[in-house]
């Protein structure tokens, strides 16, 4: 990248800084240590989910069932603990459920060849319906006494810094190392860049696609634990909210192209920062929730337009019906 041209990542980072400065000047109390820590803590869950989504998007997929799966599996874990099951056992069962659904997603995309966007959209609806019908009695599952140990993950601090920030950092580090140094991480990028070419060179393309959805469900589960620990409950209506689009917003804004193969964890961090600053600022400004939605929508739309211009769809590898 030459000096004259800025990457999307740099632009977004600059925007985030600009917003920071703007808010700091305009809003008293924005730049206090407390608010900044609060800001980062509030977006660290979004960031963790962003890493999960980022991995899938780099592999030229998309996971719209991410939030639904997170909400239902963690709520189920809490529910099981509430009925007397030991915490570790409940967590392991819920995690296994989560990983299984992730694998099913991957199988549907890689082997049945359903477009990722439909497979995961339908899966999201299905998981929510399944959870509400078979697993849970109520929309909101509160954290039972027996699960108090994990509250620390969401509400505790370490060296004066909230724990979720450390978790976000750890997930980012793990994701970065995976993408950069693990063989399967390289495969994932290759498959995302050009699946046919990757397959011809001998990359096990389909298993790699399954892997990316399993990873996303794993990281999503961790994000769910942190969410539940932060507010001491899990609201399954999150599954049918627009939260998952905030996650996509983070990824796309950060500069991970939806056509796959581009970007890394750093993009997720930058995107998270911008969204965090924006949400925090809008909340301090006391902007109405619906208006916030319009603003977020407009920003996401702009981000997609810029993404389309910067990463034009490749007519050779884009398939008919790749919508």
């Amino acid at each position: 990248m030459g000096m004259g041209r800025l990457s999307q990542e740099q632009i977004v980072f600059g925007l985030a800084l600009l917003l920071c400065v703007g808010f700091a000047l305009a809003l008293p109390g924005f730049l206090t240590t407390n608010n900044v820590l609060n800001l980062v803590r509030s977006v660290s869950i979004l960031g963790i989910l962003g890493v999960a989504m980022g991995l899938v998007v780099i592999g030229r997929g998309i996971d719209l069932s991410l939030v639904a799966l997170m909400a239902v599996s963690v709520a189920w874990a809490l529910h099981m603990v509430g009925t007397g099951m030991p915490l570790p056992q409940a967590l392991i069962i819920a995690l296994a459920f989560s990983l299984f659904i992730g694998a099913v997603n991957g199988w549907l995309v890689a082997y049945v060849e359903i477009p990722a966007i439909f497979a995961t959209l339908a899966m999201g609806t299905l998981i929510y319906g399944f959870g509400r019908y078979f697993l849970l009695d109520l929309d909101v599952v509160y954290m039972p006494e027996a699960a108090r140990h994990i509250l620390w993950l969401g509400q505790g601090t370490l060296f004066g810094v909230p724990v979720p920030i450390f978790l976000f950092a750890a997930v980012c580090l793990g994701g970065h190392l995976f993408l950069r140094y693990a063989k399967s991480g390289r495969y994932l990028r290759a498959v995302g860049d050009n699946m046919l070419a990757a397959r011809i060179t001998g990359v096990p393309a389909r298993p790699v696609v399954v892997l990316q959805y399993v990873l996303s469900s794993l990281i999503g589960f961790m994000a769910g634990i942190v969410t539940a620990a932060s507010v001491a409950s899990m609201n399954t209506r999150l599954a049918i909210s627009t939260y998952v689009y905030d996650v996509i917003l983070v990824v796309v804004l950060g500069g991970i192209g939806l056509s796959g193969g581009r970007g890394g964890i750093r993009n997720v961090i930058v995107g998270t920062l911008l969204i965090g600053v924006l949400l925090n600022g809008m909340t301090i400004l006391d902007i109405q929730y619906t208006v916030q939605n319009v603003i977020k929508g407009a920003i996401l739309l702009t981000a997609i337009v810029i993404d389309t211009i910067l990463n034009p769809r490749d007519e050779q590898t884009a398939q008919q019906g790749d919508i």
């Binding site: 339908a122 899966m123 999201g124 609806t125 299905l126 998981i127 929510y128 319906g129 399944f130 959870g131 509400r132 019908y133 049918i240």
Partner: peptide, 9 residues
């Protein structure tokens, strides 16, 4: 309680 979501999905 989500039965129709499950079915539609």
């Amino acid at each position: 309680r989500g039965g129709s979501s499950l079915m539609l999905g």
